[in-house]
Nucleic acid binder design. Structure first.
Length: 589
RNA sequence: GCCACCGUAGCUCAGGGGUAGAGCAGCUGUUUCGUAAACAGCAGGCCAACGGUUCAAAUCCGUUCGGUGGCUCCA
């Protein structure tokens, strides 16, 4: 073993993965150039889970090409070619890459005094900072995964390149484990679960718009009830507002200028109307409907109103990106002095709201002023400064994201990792000095002077639709008892037990549980199987013995343990476990 | 919107220039059963839509509509 390899053992696994994958990207570009010498190569970095390389060539890659490319890559790896770093002057680099326009563009964008490094293996050379593994052989296990389109430099005005994604690991076991993880993720895809568990459907008649079936509606409503309970402790008042407004409103709010391409418009009575993509202007109107005293503030309006946003075809995805949805949306009108306290209260509330789902702590991002924005720069500066202070006072570490804010104000976004490590943007807190200005919102302060309130937009779950998609995948469909559409199914062993099953069912329904009886003419085994597949938390089996003893035999979805209980014990057990995690096993299908 | 791929029964999928197939689900019988699939029968499709090529199109070509994986954009 050479010294370079010894060093490799000491660096962290992440760093090792990065080197392996970055090296694999080079080897892939090498392989592609062998088959298509005319290909123009763009960039090929390592990513979180693998690597990619972007190519510009007339031939369009097919899945069979991936096999061919992979074969050549394996050959290169077998050849055990060393990766060699060299430093070039700018002129040398420009000369060396004269046939690679994308590389030329990169070189020309480097500052003049920057040194330019290249990495070489075999006959392939790439502009690259490194680092790489010592030789191609250290890429021990790799797989090319997919072909996709990608814009050069991520700009949709640029040409579309072909991207090949792959992944690579330090050994075959790690690669196989990763591929298995991808397969398991597919099993808990919320779109698949939605079909199998009869939660929701989609229909081309209303693209990207979920139809919630009865069971899905139960989950949806439970989530909303959960939020409503928090609202009552945190001092929110729920309101109901229209769906359709004259465009006069959208012009006043700024949506007409800044959000038009995402809105639906209709014409009625020779008047143009827009369907709301957000609730905020309606709440501003409500606020303005009477004269407010400082004593009214903070005023917190919550609204589960249905929103419609036109999303470009190609961006929608199951429940997590739809064209119609509702949010656990609320707007807080308050004095400037109250902003920090309100923001802090919200942070407390959002952390509380995630607790029950056992998410890992959210990642926090502060999004700053975007290019397209309304309001004075000084207002933006003030708003951004307040949010920073709030984050610091609440000891939340965060990433500042330039240009990522909403058009009306900066925002704090909460990204939550799910059970298999994917991150979702759920909660958001947005500060807005602009809308109060546009709607001329006022309150009378203690001295009797007219003042302008501040406005906070905030949501914990974000869209209920997206949130539901996330928790379905988080739980793999095995929802905790309080969210399960059917909490227990009663399984009579033979027809003569149906009457007793009915008795049990009535008592459970009376105790406010969602239960049913599987009275089909099927064997018990078959009923158990179906209940397991439906991920019903409890199966209550009743036969001669139970009927005799006035009990039920309980089978939980996550194990096969059996326990007999009478109805009172059962109700207590269910009540005690309403909010505890009852995860299902993963391999059921 | 862009690039690539896909669209056959409720679901999962096979087939592929000569007129459509399986498993599961459904329905009807029989079976009344002790912890993940009883048995038998029946029914189910303008092969996404429209146009073209052809003696003949589910199959080939084009367009549209949906969907999938990415890119850009976003709750």
């Amino acid at each position: 073993m050479n010294s370079e390899s010894n060093d490799l053992i000491d660096i962290k696994l992440d760093e090792l993965h990065h080197r392996i994958r970055h090296s694999a990207a080079h080897i892939m570009a090498d392989a592609v150039l062998e088959i298509y010498p005319e290909a123009k190569i763009a960039i090929g970095p390592a990513t979180q889970d693998g690597f990619y390389y972007d190519f510009d060539l007339n031939h369009t890659f097919s899945p069979e090409d991936l096999d061919k490319i992979e074969k050549i890559m394996l050959q290169r790896i077998k050849e055990n070619l060393p990766f060699e770093r060299k430093e070039l002057t700018r002129d040398q680099a420009l000369k060396m890459f004269k046939d690679q326009p994308y590389k030329i563009e990169i070189i020309e964008n480097l500052s003049k005094d920057e040194s330019i490094s290249i990495y070489e293996h075999g006959n392939f050379v790439d502009l690259c900072e490194g680092p790489h593994v010592a030789t191609t052989k250290e890429v021990k296990a790799l797989k090319l995964l997919s072909i996709a389109g990608a814009y050069w430099r991520g700009d949709e005005n640029n040409s579309m390149l072909q991207r090949i994604y792959g992944t690579a690991f330090e050994n075959k076991e790690a690669l196989d484990a990763h591929l298995l993880k991808i397969e398991e993720a597919a099993l808990r895809d919320h779109r698949k679960l939605g079909r199998e568990l009869e939660l929701f459907i989609f229909d081309p008649i209303s693209p990207a718009s979920p139809f919630f079936l009865p069971k899905g509606t139960i989950i949806y409503n439970e989530l909303i009830d959960y939020v409503k309970n928090l609202y009552s402790t945190f001092g929110y008042q729920e309101v109901i507002t229209p769906l359709i407004f004259s465009t006069d409103l959208w012009k006043q709010s700024g949506h007409y200028d800044n959000y038009q391409e995402n809105m639906y418009f209709i014409e009625v009575d020779e008047r143009e109307f827009g369907v709301k993509p957000m609730n905020c202007p309606a709440h501003a109107l409500m606020y303005a409907s009477k004269l407010h005293s400082y004593r009214d503030l903070p005023l917190r309006y919550a609204d589960f109103g249905r929103l419609h946003r036109y999303e470009r075809s190609g961006v929608t995805h199951g429940l997590t990106r739809v064209r119609t949805f509702s949010q656990d949306d609320a707007h807080i009108f308050c004095t400037e002095d109250q902003i920090e306290q309100e923001a802090t209260n919200f942070i407390t509330m959002i952390q509380k709201s995630y607790e029950i789902f056992e998410f890992k702590p959210p990642r926090v991002a502060l999004s700053l002023r975007p290019e397209k924005s309304v309001g004075d720069k000084s207002l933006w500066d003030k708003a951004e400064k307040i949010l920073k202070t709030v984050l610091e006072n609440n000891k939340l570490s965060y990433d500042a994201m330039a240009g990522e804010g909403a058009f009306y104000g900066p925002k704090i976004d909460f990204f939550v990792p799910d059970a298999i490590g994917r991150e979702w943007q759920l909660g958001t807190l947005q500060l807005d000095f602009s809308l109060p200005e546009r709607f001329n919102l006022e309150y009378i302060n203690q001295e009797g002077n007219v003042q302008r309130p501040a406005m906070l937009h905030r949501a914990m779950f974000g869209s209920i639709e997206r949130f539901m998609g996330v928790i379905l995948e988080h739980y793999g469909g095995a929802l905790p008892l309080w969210l399960s559409p059917i909490q227990a199914t009663i399984i009579p062993i033979a027809d003569r037990h149906i009457d007793y099953a009915e008795e049990i069912n009535q008592q459970l329904i009376y105790a406010n549980f969602r239960t049913n009886i599987d009275s089909r003419s099927e064997r018990m085994n078959s009923k158990i199987r179906d209940a397991q597949l439906q991920k019903i938390p409890y199966m209550l089996i009743v036969g001669d013995k139970e009927q005799e003893e006035k009990t039920v035999a309980i089978r939980k979805r996550q194990d096969r343990s059996q326990e007999n209980m009478n109805i009172d014990m059962l109700i207590k057990h269910l009540t005690d476990n309403l909010y505890t995690k009852i995860l299902g096993t993963q391999q059921e299908n």
